[in-house]
C-alpha cells in the first residue's frame, strides 16, 4: 500500500525583517496507491518544501500528512527519496551505496549485498558494481540513487527534479527507465518537475502549483495510454492543454 493523504498543509518561513513568507497555503491532496503523480511548478513555488514535508525532513506549521493511515512524523523507511543534486555517498562504492539503508537496518552483509545486487540489476548498472560515484556519469548516479531509495522497499517514492541536471537525451532515457521500474515495482511515486513535457510523459495526474504562496492551482488527469510517444499528436494536445491552463490560471512567470 501507499496511499497518501495531505490535509490543509501550511508552511511559512520567518524573513529577516520579521514578516512571514507563506510558502504553502492550505494544500490538500490525495495520492492513490501505485499512482504516479507529478507536481508541476516554477522555481520558488514551494514544491520542494512540499516534498520535504512529505519526506519528514521538515515539520509543517499546520495540517497533516497521512501515509496508509499513519501520520508522518520524521523520516521513515516507508518513504524513499531521490534528491535533485547528487546525493550518493562518494566514499562508498555503488553497491555499498545501494546497501546503505539495509546496513542501517542491521541486515546481515550477504543478505544486503544480495538485495542490493537485485536493485543494481533493475537500474542496469551491474558492471559498475564496484565503481565509486566520481567515476559515474550524472545519469548513472541518479540511477544508483533510485536503486538506493528502492532497496528499502518503500511504499512511497519521492523524487525532487531528479533528472533536472541531465542533458535532454539522458533525461528522456531515464524517464523511460523510471516508468519501467514503476511498472515492475508498483510504488506510489510523487515526482517534482518544472518541465511540462516531463510531467505529461510520466504522470497519471499532474498537480499544478501556483507560486507565492504555493497553492494547488489545477489537478490535471493525464490519461494518455502507456507507453507514451512524446512525438504523437495526442501527447502534443495534452501538453498544450496543460500549458494553456497554466497560462490562464496559474500565473507561472
Amino acid at each position: 500500500m501507499g496511499k497518501l493523504e495531505i490535509r490543509n498543509l501550511n508552511q511559512s518561513f520567518r524573513k529577516d525583517d520579521g514578516s512571514d513568507l507563506v510558502v504553502l497555503d492550505q494544500i490538500s491532496l490525495d495520492v492513490e496507491d501505485k499512482e504516479f503523480v507529478c507536481i508541476l511548478g516554477s522555481s520558488g513555488c514551494g514544491k520542494t518544501t512540499l516534498l520535504r514535508l512529505i519526506a519528514g525532513l521538515d515539520e509543517a506549521q499546520s495540517g497533516s500528512i497521512v501515509l496508509d493511515g499513519e501520520e508522518i512524523r520524521g523520516t521513515s523507511s516507508k518513504v524513499g527519496m531521490v534528491f535533485q543534486e547528487y546525493s550518493l555517498f562518494p566514499w562508498r562504492t555503488v553497491i555499498d551505496n545501494i546497501a546503505f539503508g539495509l546496513q542501517m537496518q542491521g541486515v546481515p552483509l550477504d543478505e544486503r549485498i544480495r538485495v542490493a545486487e537485485h536493485y543494481l540489476k533493475l537500474v542496469n548498472l551491474t558492471q559498475f558494481r564496484n565503481s565509486y560515484p566520481a567515476e559515474l556519469s550524472g545519469g548513472m548516479r541518479q540511477r544508483v540513487a533510485v536503486a538506493r531509495a528502492l532497496a528499502l522497499d518503500p511504499v512511497l517514492l519521492l523524487m525532487d527534479e531528479p533528472f533536472g541536471a541531465l542533458d535532454a537525451q539522458t533525461r528522456n532515457m531515464l524517464q523511460k527507465e523510471l516508468l519501467e521500474i514503476w511498472e515492475k515495482t508498483k510504488k506510489t511515486i510523487v515526482f517534482i518537475t518544472h518541465s511540462v513535457d516531463e510531467a505529461v510523459y510520466l504522470a497519471d495526474r499532474i498537480i499544478v502549483l501556483s507560486p507565492r504562496p504555493g497553492r494547488i492551482c489545477q489537478i490535471f488527469p493525464a490519461d494518455l495510454k502507456r507507453p507514451r510517444d512524446r512525438t504523437s499528436v495526442e501527447f502534443a494536445q495534452v501538453r498544450r492543454q496543460v500549458l494553456d491552463l497554466i497560462g490562464q490560471h496559474c500565473s507561472i512567470q
Binding site: 519526506a55 525532513l57 523520516t75 527519496m81 546525493s87 542501517m104
Partner: peptide, 13 residues
Amino acid sequence: RVFVEAAKMLGCT
C-alpha cells in the same frame, strides 16, 4: 547537507 538528509531517509537518524 544532502548527504545527511539522504542518510536520514535511509534510516540513519
